[in-house]
């Protein structure tokens, strides 16, 4: 039982992240668009944190050696299975020998493929998320054979190939102009009045952006003090001004400590938006509060819970899978 990678593009096996990493100096890493990754796993009948594939920017193809069930989420793209066009954000049957192809990821930057029963991946500190600094993780190459754990016979609408599932999930939309919500950073006062530039400027995503951080061009707030800053832990989402050229927005691959003042912090919800921002896309920032940001994050999680229960019902009616995975909103504390 396996998946054979035919065209890897730029793809890895990941999960929601290495939450125990930061205390050992390792970034959390994991799926950059957490909502899409959780949704893919839920649609495939998995726990949220199950290993899944993250495809960045480039076309991707793989062949299944057995009948499987998958779900593809994230950036809008052209999905085909055995040459048939299929829908994203829905469970999709793949027959043994068929090729799954993801093409034209041009609306956003990252797509996720979850496989019912998940795929095998090595684990470091409780997570399979790749870490480029310590050289850990499963980067897919042509011919990589990914072990799968369960076979699902084809579920196919017998008539007209009509869509089988109407799951009622609001699909996130990705645009070339995005609004990103932030809260004041702990060092906002160090920027004086120039901090306001963050909210009045339209920034452009630079091509030098990656999973460690996005670099944004535009009018830059300036630090007013020159006092030495001792290295300290910086959160994912921290916005810094390390040079006179670009704004740096740290994402999940960020080094855990740094010595730059933190101007603002992107909300958990908006980090998913940044995960889909392509070079050349425009970003504007909107200020919010921590309670408001927390409320939005929880609303998204509730939506995923509703999806989980709908999928559970559909799957049990169709006889897909054995006992469902225990609901897992988030990795347990300390995991």
């Amino acid at each position: 039982m396996s998946l054979i990678i035919q065209q890897p593009g730029h793809s890895v096996v990941t999960d929601l992240g290495r939450f125990r990493g930061p205390r050992f100096g390792l970034p959390v890493n994991g799926a950059l668009d957490q909502f899409s990754a959780r949704a893919a796993n839920i649609l495939a009948g998995n726990g949220d944190n199950a290993p899944l594939l993250e495809i960045t920017a480039l076309d991707f193809r793989m062949r299944a050696t057995t009948d499987i069930l998958i779900a593809v989420t994230g950036a809008p793209l052209h999905l085909t299975v055995g040459g048939r066009q299929c829908q994203q954000w829905e469970p999709v049957s793949v027959r043994a020998g068929e090729t799954v192809a993801l093409r034209r990821l041009d609306g956003g930057l990252r797509a996720y493929i979850a496989v019912h029963g998940s795929v095998h991946a090595p684990v470091l500190l409780g997570s399979c998320a790749p870490d480029t600094v310590v050289g850990f993780g499963l980067r897919l190459t042509e011919g990589t054979e990914l072990k799968t754990f369960s076979t699902v016979p084809p579920i196919r609408q017998p008539y007209f190939d009509l869509p089988l599932f109407r799951l009622g999930l609001t699909r996130p939309e990705f645009h070339s102009t995005a609004v990103v919500e932030v809260t004041d950073g702990p060092d906002v006062e160090e920027f004086g009045d120039t901090a306001d530039l963050l909210y009045s400027t339209e920034y452009t995503v630079s091509g030098r952006s990656n999973h460690i951080g996005l670099r944004l061009g535009g009018a830059l707030p300036e630090r007013q003090s020159t006092a030495e800053v001792l290295s300290r832990g910086v959160p994912v989402g921290a916005i810094e001004v390390p040079s006179r050229e670009e704004l740096l927005v740290l994402h999940r691959g960020r080094g855990v400590t740094a010595g730059y003042p933190v101007l603002a912090v992107v909300t958990s919800r908006s980090l998913d938006v940044l995960a889909q921002a392509r070079p050349g896309h425009k970003i504007t920032f909107r200020k919010t509060t921590v309670p408001e940001a927390t409320a939005k994050h929880r609303a998204a999680l509730r939506e995923l819970e509703t999806l989980r229960s709908t999928v559970g019902t559909v799957f049990s009616l169709l006889g897909v899978g054995g006992p469902p995975d225990p609901p897992r909103l988030a990795p347990a504390a300390g995991s």
């Binding site: 939450f19 125990r20 205390r23 959390v28 001792l230 300290r232 855990v256 994050h297 909103l329």
Partner: peptide, 19 residues
């Protein structure tokens, strides 16, 4: 609570806002 990252005079405490 995921964990804490102490440095010189500061500590970053990370947590899951869903929990």
């Amino acid at each position: 609570v995921h964990g804490a990252v102490p440095t010189y005079d500061s500590l970053l405490v990370e947590f899951d806002p869903g929990v």
